[in-house]
Design a protein around this nucleic acid. Structure first.
Lengths: 217, 217
DNA sequence: TAATGTTAGTGAACAGTGTTTACTTTCTGA
DNA sequence: TCAGAAAGTAAACACTGTTCACTAACATTA
């Protein structure tokens, strides 16, 4: 996506920028935004704290880039599943569960991506540039899939794809956030049915899809 | 709930403690945990910053109390709905939508209640003391309601109430978090079906309940 | 009542944060 | 070669939560 810039100076600059981002990524993935301090980061890459500000105008901007490239990862994965030719029912479920799986693979990233209202556009599609944003494109994939379900009769005919997509997204978001914040989710007491995380994700996705399904009677 | 303590000194102490909490609550509701600083808080109540530490061992402890009493509010409301004798279908929907409505009435409180893994126990019922915690009791209300739905045949018979409650909670949590973080959620573009927040909450709840419903064929 | 001990409250400091400013060094393009 | 831009830095600013030594007020007991 990034075109190789011509000037050697510029190339070197981008290299250093990337090194800062890479070091930041490592710390961020382990400890989140609070654990990532400019001074620590500067020490890691043997620069002075002020040097970081020659490459990023603020810590927020730096973290925003981490979040953005993380959401690119989610988008890639979701797209990959959405573009397969497996039967609709499986494809829809895979698509949703993939979102959660990738999201919780980097809990701090995911939580942060939604935590700061300032950072980037949220999943609200009346904002300018939403369709171009990573979140916007992920949302559109989801909406398209639901529209397909309505068309082929798998989903209720009175279901508005945009609304349903927002609702389904909220449900996926909820489980992703739960797992991101509570590492042991969903744990169950003795005497109750136990279920591993992976299986529970599938169960949750199934519930969400069932909510949209059409039923002939 | 709080018993009036005997000693006048102790009574005065509790009064000041309550005043600190009340001042903190106001700032927290408006600006969240980051906006609430010990120095600002101390200035508000005309005390020195160090004085706060005679009443709370840390800022976290103070904020935890705000979160706890907020979750008590959620629990009260949910309980009130759950204990009515309205038909099951309506009662279940009201219960879920009430959770979201109360949650988003204080977005910062709700987001913070789940943000810090440290603060209080999460909705993971194998932790000790979960059943006694506010979250635990709210969870049990939800599970009981789902169990009732299974019993009367409104919900699928193969639905495990504990698992379903966790899934439904995650879905409610997702929308609550969305609204908490993105004040304009769910906004829709022109040309798409528009829906106000209140109506969308009902729509979302309906989707979740549909996912649990039984269908005779 | 007088002495003692406990508690309330404070100012100053510590260690940490993001960020800016003035400055020097290094590199680059004409 | 030389002016100008860019890279990099040390030191400071304005914050943050928190602790410590200290004083003043209160409570309890001899």
């Amino acid at each position: 996506m990034t075109v190789a810039t011509s000037s050697p100076a510029e190339r070197r600059r981008n290299k250093i920028r990337a090194r800062i981002l890479s070091a930041a990524e490592t710390v961020f993935a382990r400890e989140g935004a609070e654990g990532l301090s400019i001074r620590r980061l500067a020490e890691n890459i043997d620069y002075s704290p002020a040097a970081i500000y020659k490459y990023f105008s603020s810590k927020d901007e730096l973290v925003d880039e981490l979040k953005e490239s993380f959401f690119e990862l989610i988008l890639e994965n979701v797209h990959r599943i959405a573009d397969t030719s497996t039967p609709f029912a499986d494809r829809a479920r895979d698509c949703l569960s993939t979102y959660i799986r990738v999201a919780v693979a980097k809990p701090h990233h995911y939580a942060a991506a939604f935590a700061g209202e300032s950072g980037g556009t949220g999943p609200v599609d009346n904002e300018p540039g939403f369709d171009q944003s990573k979140k916007g494109r992920a949302f559109n994939v989801l909406r398209g899939m639901i529209a397909e379900g309505v068309e082929i009769g798998a989903f209720r005919s009175d279901l508005d794809p945009s609304l349903a997509a927002k609702s389904a997204w909220a449900s996926m978001h909820g489980l992703a956030m739960m797992i991101a914040h509570i590492p042991t989710y969903p744990a169950l007491k003795d005497g109750q049915k136990t279920m591993a995380r992976e299986a529970f994700i599938d169960f949750h996705v199934d519930q969400v899809v069932r909510g949209m399904e059409a039923h002939d009677e």
